[in-house]
Measured scan of single mutants.
Amino acid sequence: MKTQEELTEIVRDHFSDMGEIATLYVQVYESSLESLVGGVIFEDGRHYTFVYENEDLVYE
């Protein structure tokens, strides 16, 4: 089982391919040991929310 830090790094690596990240945040109250819920804001102003669970990243 991966730690929350490892899950965060996986998500950061994925989004870094889309541009320069200004902020990546995790909603700790919605996340667990198996899933990571949060959002990412890019330097150009784009903002996505995401759920990473079971090695699957869903964002909008």
Rank of each mutant, 00 (worst) to 15 (best):
M1K: 13
M1F: 14
T3H: 05
T3A: 05
Q4A: 08
Q4N: 05
Q4C: 08
Q4P: 06
E5S: 11
E5M: 09
E5F: 11
E5W: 12
E5R: 08
E6W: 07
E6V: 08
L7K: 04
L7D: 01
L7S: 02
T8A: 09
T8W: 08
T8M: 12
E9K: 14
E9S: 12
I10Y: 09
I10Q: 07
V11F: 03
V11T: 03
R12F: 09
R12Q: 05
R12W: 13
D13S: 15
H14K: 13
F15R: 01
F15L: 06
F15I: 03
F15C: 03
S16M: 11
D17K: 15
M18I: 08
G19Q: 02
G19F: 03
G19M: 03
G19P: 02
G19W: 03
G19R: 02
E20P: 10
I21Q: 01
I21R: 01
I21F: 03
A22W: 09
A22N: 08
A22R: 15
T23L: 12
L24C: 04
L24Q: 01
L24K: 00
L24H: 01
Y25I: 05
V26E: 01
V26W: 06
Q27R: 12
Q27D: 08
V28S: 12
V28M: 13
Y29F: 10
Y29P: 05
E30G: 08
E30A: 10
E30M: 12
S31V: 10
S31C: 09
S31G: 10
S32K: 11
S32W: 09
L33E: 10
L33N: 14
L33C: 09
E34I: 11
S35R: 15
S35T: 12
L36E: 00
V37R: 13
G38R: 00
G38I: 04
G38Y: 03
G38V: 03
G38L: 03
G39N: 07
G39V: 12
G39S: 09
V40D: 00
V40G: 00
I41D: 03
I41L: 08
F42V: 00
E43T: 15
E43M: 15
E43Y: 12
E43N: 12
D44C: 03
D44E: 02
G45K: 04
R46I: 05
R46T: 07
H47G: 04
H47V: 07
Y48Q: 01
F50T: 00
F50R: 00
F50C: 01
F50W: 09
V51W: 13
Y52L: 09
Y52D: 00
Y52T: 02
Y52M: 06
Y52I: 07
E53I: 15
E53F: 14
N54R: 11
N54Y: 08
E55Y: 11
D56T: 15
D56C: 13
D56P: 02
Y59D: 03
E60S: 15
